[in-house]
């Protein structure tokens, strides 16, 4: 009550607080993005040839496909590792939860270079990981210089982006609902599938989106751990801008990736939106009852 009246009395619009951030965003994101867009359509004239050539040069589509496939695998791996991990975090005491959180955040706090070179040491030909696999007879797997190594390293660094939204979503689920489902005739597995899983879907969707979109733009890890023959889209972009100086082509490629990403986010928002709306309603409701 007090807050509402206070807000009504205050004449200063609080959105003024957004101006510094919006100004910065406009200067460092919107302006260069607009420039790229203009360059890509051949300003001052207008042509779509740079876009057309993305689909005809025989390289871009292959790399794009490989990037999407890699991102999908990384997202799947992060989800399969992250969901049980986040679930465990909601079930342990506060101290162990802190430890689990730190473990998942360590790659975050490590420098990008240190982390990637550490992976090179581990994954290189004759390195510890390959030796283990060789011991079990799998001696033809190349970790470094292949998509496999890139996937492993990317999954590790992107795991927090899966675990954190999942943890916040799973932590908000009332476990007594599972008891209720058990009492109403559901086995533990069915109770999980019909009650827990649908209620966790909001967190799942945001985790998947975060990891997938971040994977699409990864540059350093594929550059160091992958190989030029198996480059991903960010490497292609870098190559076009720094080596070929083909700014129009790079601009067109950048815009294409942006469009793909935004389409995906919009689609997932529509899918996840209804779920988070129900979740939010359930949360407010619980607060009211207290």
């Amino acid at each position: 009550m007090t807050t509402t009246t206070r807000q009504r009395r205050a004449p200063r619009p609080s959105w003024l607080l957004l101006i510094p951030a919006l100004g910065l965003l406009a200067a460092v994101l919107l302006v260069p993005l607009g420039q790229s867009l203009l360059t890509s359509v051949g300003a001052p004239g207008f042509t779509l040839e740079h876009y057309a050539s993305l689909f005809t040069d025989g390289v871009t589509l292959t790399v794009l496909g490989r990037t999407v496939a890699t991102a999908a695998i990384v997202t799947a791996v992060a989800f399969l590792l992250g969901y049980p991990y986040a679930y465990l975090m909601t079930r342990v005491g506060p101290r162990l939860r802190g430890v689990l959180l730190v473990i998942v955040l360590i790659p975050f706090w490590t420098s990008v270079m240190a982390r990637n070179y550490a992976w090179i040491v581990l994954l290189q030909r004759g390195g510890p990981v390959q030796s283990v696999f060789e011991f079990f007879g799998a001696d033809d797997i190349a970790f470094q210089g292949s998509v496999v190594g890139v996937t492993v390293a990317m999954s590790q660094v992107l795991l927090p982006f899966m675990v954190l939204p999942l943890f916040s979503s799973l932590g908000g689920i009332d476990r007594r609902l599972l008891l209720a489902a058990r009492g109403l005739g559901s086995s533990p597995l069915v109770a999980f599938w019909k009650i827990y899983w649908p209620l966790s879907r909001g967190g799942v969707v945001s985790g998947l989106i975060l990891v997938f979109t971040l994977s699409l733009g990864f540059y350093v890890t594929p550059a160091l751990l992958g190989s030029p023959q198996q480059s991903l889209i960010a490497q292609l972009l870098a190559q076009r801008t720094t080596q070929l100086l083909d700014f129009a082509g790079a601009g067109a490629l950048g815009i294409l990736v942006l469009v793909i990403t935004l389409t995906l986010v919009a689609w997932a928002n529509r899918f996840g939106g209804t779920i988070s709306a129900i979740g939010a309603a359930a949360t407010t409701d619980r607060k009211e009852q207290r």
């Binding site: 609902l177 008891l179 209720a180 058990r182 009492g183 005739g185 533990p188 209620l199 979740g279 009852q289």
Partner: peptide
């Protein structure tokens, strides 16, 4: 027997309705 095989109805203080 596990709870789901006892065929008992249960009413909780917090209602425990499925929000979705």
């Amino acid at each position: 027997l596990p709870p789901h095989k006892r065929n008992l109805g249960m009413l909780f203080q917090n209602y425990a309705l499925f929000p979705h």
